[in-house]
Measured scan of single mutants.
Amino acid sequence: MTEYKLVVVGAGGVGKSALTIQLIQNHFVDEYDPTIEDSYRKQVVIDGETCLLDILDTAGQEEYSAMRDQYMRTGEGFLCVFAINNTKSFEDIHHYREQIKRVKDSEDVPMVLVGNKCDLPSRTVDTKQAQDLARSYGIPFIETSAKTRQGVDDAFYTLVREIRKHKEKMSKDGKKKKKKSKTKCVIM
Rank of each mutant, 00 (worst) to 15 (best):
A83E: 15
M111P: 00
P121R: 09
Q70K: 14
M72Y: 04
G75E: 04
V103C: 07
L113R: 01
L120P: 09
P121S: 12
I100R: 01
S122H: 09
V103G: 06
T74I: 07
I93V: 06
Q99L: 15
D92G: 05
S106I: 13
V112F: 04
G115Y: 09
R73V: 07
D69E: 12
Q99S: 11
E76Y: 12
L79W: 00
T124M: 11
E98G: 03
K104N: 14
Y71L: 03
M67D: 05
E76W: 14
C118G: 11
M111Y: 04
M67S: 06
N116W: 00
T124W: 09
F82L: 10
G77M: 13
V81H: 02
M72L: 04
C118N: 08
F78C: 02
G115A: 14
S106D: 14
N116Y: 01
A83K: 05
S89E: 05
E107N: 11
I100L: 09
M72S: 06
R123T: 13
I93G: 03
D69L: 02
E107M: 14
E76R: 05
D108R: 07
G75C: 07
T87S: 10
M72W: 07
T124G: 12
V81E: 04
S122K: 08
L79Q: 02
N116P: 01
T124K: 10
E76L: 12
R102G: 05
Q70E: 10
V112I: 09
R123V: 12
D108I: 06
K101P: 02
E76S: 10
P110C: 03
A66H: 12
V125F: 10
V109I: 10
T74G: 12
M72K: 13
D108N: 09
Q99G: 04
F82P: 00
D126Q: 08
Y71M: 06
Y64F: 05
R123H: 12
M67Y: 08
V81N: 04
E107K: 07
D105L: 06
D108V: 07
Y71P: 14
E98D: 08
V114S: 01
S106E: 13
Y96T: 06
R73F: 06
C80M: 12
D105G: 15
F82H: 09
E76F: 11
C118K: 06
Q70C: 11
K88S: 14
D119Q: 04
E107V: 11
E98P: 01
G75S: 06
K88Q: 13
G115P: 06
R68S: 07
Y71C: 13
V125T: 11
M111F: 10
D126C: 09
L113F: 13
V125K: 11
I84V: 14
V125H: 11
I84A: 15
A83Q: 14
V81C: 08
S65D: 05
D119Y: 02
V114I: 13
G75T: 05
V112W: 02
D119C: 06
G75A: 14
D69R: 06
N86E: 12
E98V: 01
G75D: 02
L79D: 00
K101V: 07
C80G: 04
G77Y: 10
F82R: 00
K104T: 15
R68M: 03
T74C: 09
K117I: 15
E63I: 02
P121D: 13
D69F: 02
R102W: 04
Y71E: 08
K101L: 08
Y64H: 04
R73A: 12
V81F: 08
R68Y: 02
E63P: 04
R102V: 05
K104C: 12
N116H: 14
K104H: 12
G77C: 13
A83Y: 00
E76H: 13
R73Y: 09
L113M: 11
V81T: 08
Q99V: 11
I100V: 06
F82S: 14
